[in-house]
Design a protein around this nucleic acid. Structure first.
Length: 974
DNA sequence: GTGTGGCA
DNA sequence: TGCCACAC
């Protein structure tokens, strides 16, 4: 141990002090386990908000944490002679306790916005101190601490838990104590007894009875810590107490103990810490090491903690000025430290600070063809904790694409391309020596996998969902990730698109090499594996380089513009969820579709004959131009409208008008059109999308193509499968469950109207939803002043149209069209509606006003939707944007809620061990495939997760009702 | 109001 | 490219 002390005062870094000695703590050793999460919150709340001077990055909690950790290391050194130390964090997301009790910690508000980005920085700080930073998915820090404490104590070591969390007091015994560094107070068995009225071994029983409002542990009503201690001291333990509860004299207390016995037992399971977590980091890895001065001081300097930097430097005997600022944060973010202006350039010589502005030069990229070279790139990524990543494939279909190559960027301007399957096509010979030189696919994947799956290496990409999909099919589960496309979306939805080329031009002023230029276009287009490797390197490595540069611009903006929570809660975590859904696909019955297709063509043939007969000639029914001429010019039907291009309008509304006049031809055209659409778009097109390997259809969801936050589905679009007409619904019967499985469809009832009630604060609507009333009938009754009982269906229909109109930012014009009434009549309806629900008019007016003033609106979760043309001089255009402004918070909030539900769902299902897979999302509906035997349980869980999806971020003033049904096909389940 | 896709 | 039709 004395040698340790010497190394603690070593003057410079040397190889041996960095090397862990790997000694397992035993007799005579003293291990310190720091409750990192507790530390973070105390640091955050105890200190005034502090931001980094150069760029405003919030670093208050980081500063407090570093000071505490440093002080701990200093203060304890002489007093306790610690030999081992680790900092243990909660893993984000839920723990196994939510499985026991869904509401566990449900009252916890989300972390403050300016604290969120500091979590990763604090983990970096721990690493900079060369202290192990430990966390595990599914477990809380307390359980890890309990496991390590017991292991070490069993081995004869002394243990000190650095925390003031009362939940950890159950662990205290002769070998284990606690230290509250804030109050500089040691907590031993006596202190525990003072707090709980019982010894540490009975703390769990007392907590089980008393409950905990902070963690939402239910306990037994009417029993606090005092009473609980009294009872436990009298009866010995919880089980005996509950068995003999009948003996208790006080009536209410007796009744509650009997009624809530099970709840007390669940509470005990919640508070009892797990001591057998399958930890992956061993105690021997916690031996105290002297930090590497370059790493530690580099980090502190980068954070701009001047005082602490000086203190640490003098302690380590290093000149702080000689150490460059880290310039980036391992495992999290290469944050730009330098200022933008050219005058700020030319800092300390040798300081390597990545610059987004260094010119982009495709000739500078490296082609990696040797395993050794790949290893070097990956080592750099691992050492710095991040890399930009891009994959090249031979197809745009992620479920069919072959991986052709991978590109990596580690710094702006420093990027490489690793060709993997070039030239495998026939007759290709790029260098005249047979196939191109490249690392074999298997060897490259073997090298890439540990880094791409390393939780300490951040993978940065542009639309990474695609790359994740491809790599998943090659056995690699990439994590953690950051996505520049989604960052741009969280920041700038509505302002512009979020594709790489567009972002590059916009933010970097650089136009990336167009794909066309290397692969050609049209008929002569080649796939990427056929592109000569030098050309491929220029293109592929540039994409990784550009992505990294975009990241360095967009990531700080998320913090500065307070969109980090939107990104972290609604964008980033959805990526792996969608990867799984797309990967899973949905089963489609080919026979059903082909039968329908035949049936539809037969019917269409019959209609065609009839149509030609009525028209007096044969023509292309599918051509609006020809059709208009036949109907209006030839047949001379009246009342035709012209489109803005001057052609006759032949849309459904126009044809329906003609049909209503008693003409037969337009009705037949409508019938024909309906079938034609069903046949071409669905029955004929869908089978083409059945994947050869999986036999299922894998749609692709785009996360950043709507302005409001909705997803969009394409190739094929499974969000517009017919449901309205009988013929259309038959297409849904082709979507089926695997044998032994069922499809479950769960949808939100009236979610957008509920959000209107919540956002606009309309009491009558909120009450109606709370009471489960028929909302359209209720609206009709209110505005037309008729009783709900015995209401005419047409009256309810009108109210329903108005309700929809509200969601869309109603205009008299639109409502008139919808209901087939005059504009003035529609205007009267709207007036009536607003008179009855003035809150909605107020909401619309204030939304428009703020949209005009700010140029954007927001959802209830803070998602921003920009409306750059809201102040357009063109009146029609402006009105259009105003309606979009009214609709966006409603549609967008609903989209946010279902995104949250999807993100929560994956964990919720696996926690209770249900095998169901989420397959599809259709805006307010989620479709699952579940084992027949689990359908009931799955329906319940799905409804539960969906209806609570807004919590705990938002407390909605309306309930979110969800309906779920199971069946063999989608039509019956819906 | 928000999308995707087929067709001329 | 515009029109039309399907979904929520």
């Amino acid at each position: 141990m004395s040698s340790k002390k010497e190394s603690n005062t070593a003057k410079t870094k040397s190889p041996e002090v960095k090397k862990p000695d790997g000694k397992l703590p035993g007799k005579g050793d003293h291990i310190f386990l720091v409750d990192g999460s507790g530390y973070i919150f105390r640091a955050y709340h105890a200190l005034p908000p502090l931001t980094r001077k150069s760029d405003g990055l919030p670093v208050g909690a980081v500063s407090g944490f570093c000071n505490m950790l440093y002080k701990l290391l200093q203060d304890t050194k002489d007093e306790f002679e610690p030999t081992h130390l680790a900092v243990i964090f909660d893993h984000s997301g839920k723990s196994f306790r939510n499985e026991l009790y869904a509401d566990y910690k449900a009252h916890r508000p989300p972390a403050p916005e300016d604290l969120v980005p500091q979590f990763a920085l604090i983990r970096d700080a721990v690493r900079a101190f060369d202290v192990p930073s430990i966390e595990m998915e599914g477990f809380e820090a307390d359980d890890l601490i309990a496991t390590y404490a017991c292991q070490a104590a069993a081995n004869g070591a002394r243990v000190t838990i650095v925390s003031s969390d009362k939940d950890l007091m159950q662990l205290v015994n002769g070998n284990i104590d606690m230290l509250d560094t804030m109050k500089l107070k040691a907590i031993g068995p006596a202190e525990v007894e003072e707090k709980f009225g019982v010894g540490p071994d009975k703390v769990v029983d007392v907590q089980a009875l008393a409950g905990d409002s902070v963690d939402n542990v239910p306990g037994v009503p009417g029993i606090g810590i005092k009473t609980a201690a009294l009872l436990i001291n009298e009866y010995g333990d919880l089980d005996t107490l509950l068995e003999r509860a009948g003996e208790i004299k006080q009536k209410k207390r007796r009744e509650n103990l009997i009624e809530f016995a099970d709840q007390a037992r669940i509470s005990r399971d919640l508070v009892r810490l797990k001591q057998d977590v399958p930890v992956t980091v061993g105690l021997e890895e916690m031996d105290i090491k002297t930090p590497d001065p370059v790493k530690l001081i580099g980090f502190l300097k980068d954070m701009e903690f001047t005082t602490l930097t000086k203190r640490v430097a003098s302690e380590l005997g290093v000149e702080a000025d000689e150490v460059p600022a880290a310039g980036e944060h391992p495992a999290d973010a290469p944050v730009i430290v330098e200022a933008k202006g050219p005058t700020e350039r030319g800092g300390a010589p040798g300081a390597v600070s990545p610059s987004v502005e260094a010119p982009i030069d495709p000739d500078a990229y490296e082609t990696v063809t040797e395993p050794g070279a790949l290893k070097a790139w990956l080592k750099e990524a691992k050492d710095q904790g991040f890399m930009a990543l891009d994959t090249e494939t031979d197809s745009l279909d992620a479920m069919a694409a072959r991986l052709v190559g991978v590109s990596i960027a580690t710094r702006p301007g420093k990027a490489c391309y690793i060709p993997l399957q070039h030239g495998s096509g026939e007759g290709l010979d790029f260098d005249g020596n047979g196939t191109p030189e490249q690392i074999s696919l298997d060897e490259a994947l073997g090298l890439l996998k540990p880094v791409l799956e390393d939780p300490a290496v951040l993978k940065i990409g542009q639309n990474l969902k695609y790359d994740l999909q491809v790599l998943k099919r090659h056995g690699i589960d990439v994590a953690p990730i950051d996505d520049t496309m989604l960052m741009s979306y969280a920041l700038d939805a509505g302002l512009h698109g979020h594709g790489m080329d567009e972002l590059s031009k916009l933010h970097l002023g650089h136009e990336p090499i167009p794909f066309k230029e290397i692969a050609g276009s049209g008929k002569s287009q080649i796939t990427f594996d056929q592109v000569p490797i030098p050309k491929a390197t220029r293109y592929a490595a540039e994409d990784a380089d550009v992505t990294l540069r975009l990241y360095m611009i967009l990531k700080p903006r998320l913090v500065a513009e307070k969109k980090i929570t939107v990104y972290e809660t609604l964008e980033r975590p959805l990526v792996p969820v969608l990867v799984d859904m797309e990967h899973e696909g949905v089963k489609i019955d080919r026979q059903v579709l082909s039968r329908l297709s035949g049936e539809f063509s037969q019917k269409m043939g019959a209609y065609e004959e009839e149509i030609y007969e009525l028209a007096g000639e044969e023509f292309n029914i599918g051509s609006p131009k020809q059709l208009g001429e036949i109907l209006y010019d030839k047949k001379g039907l009246s009342g035709g409208r012209k489109t803005k291009t001057g052609a006759w309008s032949t849309d459904a509304a126009a044809l329906e008008e003609l049909a209503a006049q008693g003409h037969e031809l337009p009705q037949r055209i409508l019938d024909w059109r309906g079938l034609s659409k069903l046949k071409s778009t669905y029955t004929d097109a869908l089978p083409e999308y059945i994947n050869k390997e999986t036999g299922r259809v894998h749609t692709s969801y785009s996360m950043a193509s709507t302005t409001t936050g909705r997803l969009a589905s394409s190739e094929p679009n499974l969000q517009n499968i017919p449901v309205r007409t009988e013929d259309g619904r038959r297409i849904r019967t082709a979507f089926i469950a695997e044998k032994g499985m069922k499809l479950i469809s769960a949808d939100y009832s009236q979610i957008e109207l509920r959000l209107v009630a919540h956002i606009a604060g309309v009491k009558e609507l909120k009450d109606a939803f709370a009471d489960g009333l028929d909302i359209h009938a209720m609206t009709a009754s209110e505005i037309f002043n008729v009783p709900i009982k015995g209401m005419e269906p047409s009256v309810r229909r009108r109210a329903k149209a108005i309700n929809f109109g509200i969601i869309y930012g109603i205009s008299a014009f639109g409502l008139a069209n919808q209901l087939g009434i005059s504009r003035s009549e529609a205007g009267d309806y709207i007036d009536l509606y607003f008179k009855r629900f003035p809150g909605i008019r107020d909401y619309m007016e204030s939304t428009k006003e703020s949209a005009h003033k700010n140029g954007f609106v927001e959802t209830i979760f803070g998602r921003k939707i920009h409306l750059p043309e809201i102040n357009s001089k063109n009146g029609a255009r402006r009105s259009f944007m105003e309606r979009a402004a009214i609709n966006a918070p409603i549609q967008g909030s609903a989209a946010d809620i279902i995104r949250r539900a999807m993100i929560h769902m994956a964990g919720a299902l696996s926690r209770v061990d249900l095998k169901a897979r989420m397959l599809l999302q259709v805006h307010d509906e989620l479709i699952f495939e579940a084992p027949e035997k689990e359908t009931e349980k799955t329906c319940k869980l799905v409804c539960d997760v969906m209806s609570k999806a807004a919590e705990p971020a938002i407390a909605l003033s309306v309930p979110l009702d969800v309906e779920a049904n199971a069946a063999d096909n989608w039509d019956e389940a819906h």
